[in-house]
Design a binder for these strands. Structure first.
Lengths: 205, 205, 205, 205
DNA sequence: TATGAATGAGTTTTCATTCAT
DNA sequence: AATGAATGAAAACTCATTCAT
């Protein structure tokens, strides 16, 4: 019985993910969702209070995956050699890209729909984005003294890193419809290490 | 008479820009626009066929500014010394940030609303974004041989550059509500030059 | 449940018939129909896609009655004596007038609204009218040889018969608001038999 | 100057006739009329108070032509021999058909649009139709005693005559898009004389 | 718990008419 | 007299949400 309910919930969420992804939040009708989920119109309201609630449910699911992954990256930018730092950064980009491509629809729903202005989800999006920037900035700051990375302002630099990750990934996922995870994560790690080596390079030269 | 019309058009476009920025495209009502513009409901339809059309009008305005600016950046990444290349990159980031902040609302409307999934404007957005990536990739390719920049795949690298530019700028404009153009453009140029120096650095080491 | 739906449908159609009859198709608002039917505005759209669709529904209902009746009149104009032919013609006019007066509102909606120029229903009307002319012409042709009726061109003559039937009936229904079915059908039969006896009369004289 | 005005009026009326004929009254926009007439939107209101007024203007024009013609038919159904009556009836149908086909658009606007239910013009239409029936009925009555025509009730018979005239003519004008005036008027006269000879024929037999 | 028919508030759009120029 | 931009009332239609079964 409870399984039945769980299944209905999953059907509804699954249908919503597909539809938000295809048509966007605003253009998706409750009737579309229930239609795709194969349940009656009224049933939707047994599981969610409103369309917004499904959206937030989806955002939460993704945010949890995301947070869990970020938690595991304590040693991003750490290392006792340039190569080790590079390896850690690469590991990070690889994992992140893998997670984003695996949950591509949810990622896009959150990062595009959520960011859309006036969306009721702007706040959610900003919270997640800011949290992401913060955590990366903190990781940077933690390793400022190692001498293997260099930057003026951790927040600014973090926003660069996340921007290049986020948009380039969606560029390949969305526009190019093809992501070579290995190549992209490696190039990303290279670029990041280069970008973070400005002063160290100059100094060592 | 014609001036009057021009003025009405500007009022309408101005109101639309403000409202799309504040509430998003979907949540903005024609009645909001005419209300803010101080004209009658019907007047809107003398100037635009639909809400979509105002949106595209705004996108076009911004796209033109944007294209004009891109045209002027023929020597992005060129130069006969590391410093000269850096200077050119910096000039570019400075100009671009200035333009984006000056036309902040339009920029955000296009880059967020336009990118929103299922939005009717996805195509417009993708066209502009792809065009942007293409032009930067071409500038990169043109200067591959100079030895001052280095990369495996120009398109990938271009998507990095644009991503970091785009998102970090909006992060400061939107979330932080404060952009230090000089500092940001300089740091961006530094990061870019670092990111593009991977191999050169390794080689010279 | 299904009965409930059927009832709602009937209420809506009934209200529409009344209103189209009183105010015409164009002047009838959906809000008038739902108001008269005692249902909510949105309910209308559960049963019909548009105002046009109710109209066509009504036309179909009447057309079916009409076609069924025409099917039964195989022996119109047949007979082995002038009197028998007359009797058959009279039977026909009597039945037809009875059907039209019984379904007076529907008949008028189709024959007036439908025929109205530029109406979206012109085609429907013309189809029905032409079909009516055709069938009467065929019945005439079938009995051309009996010697009890006479005419040059069956189609022309059929258009005479239908015209006199159609307009005179509406003249009494609409303008005079009173129809003496027996008298009218008899006079009509007399007139028709006279009109169709031109040559026979001359010959016999 | 005054000629100029007259010309504008004619342009407007002409455009209105064409458009009412093509698209119907309701579907015709003032903007269509002024567009076709080549004058400004506001100019319309210098000549007519509303769309209704142009329609009535057109109806009046036609009604005048029609009334003038009816006035001239004092000797419809008169004559001192069957042949003479026939000749007069034929003359009448010929003239009437000629007039209707010559002013085909106006005729159809009045007889179809005007008759459309709920049309604001129902009254106008009914007035004209009733007047037509009345005058024919009076002509019939006047000649009841001659012995060349026979009928029970003049009004009924008049409604037959007009119905057959009206609808059959429009059937050929509209549906068949071809009217053979000579043949149609002759057949009509034949049919009418037949229809009106019921009793006389029986008596003389 | 599940259903799906019913609701009605909310939005876009049209177009006859007005009026300043 | 002529113009045509501006007006705003009116109407069709959509869809999230409710509720009786």
């Amino acid at each position: 019985m409870i399984e039945r309910q769980e299944q209905k919930l999953k059907q509804l969420v699954g249908a919503a993910v597909d539809l938000f992804y295809e048509k966007g939040f605003q253009s998706t009708r409750i009737s579309d969702i229930v239609g795709k989920a194969g349940v009656a119109q009224g049933t939707f309201y047994l599981y969610f209070k409103s369309k917004e609630e499904v959206f937030l449910h989806i955002c939460n699911e993704f945010t949890q995956l995301f947070s869990a992954l970020l938690e595991e990256t304590q040693d991003l930018f750490t290392g006792s050699s340039h190569e080790e730092v590079h390896k850690n950064v690469h590991q990070f980009t690889h994992r992140l890209i893998t997670m984003f491509t695996t949950n591509g629809k949810m990622a896009k729903i959150l990062f595009f729909e959520g960011g859309s202005y006036g969306g009721q989800f702007r706040k959610v999006y900003e919270g997640i984005y800011t949290g992401f920037v913060d955590i990366v900035a903190r990781r940077l700051e933690k390793n400022r003294q190692t001498g293997y990375i260099s930057f003026e302002d951790a927040e600014t630099e973090a926003s660069f890193l996340i921007g290049m990750f986020d948009r380039s990934l969606f560029y390949f996922m969305d526009v190019k419809k093809k992501v070579d995870i290995d190549a992209l994560s490696r190039r990303m790690a290279d670029f990041i290490m280069g970008g973070l080596s400005k002063n160290t390079r100059d100094i060592r030269k």
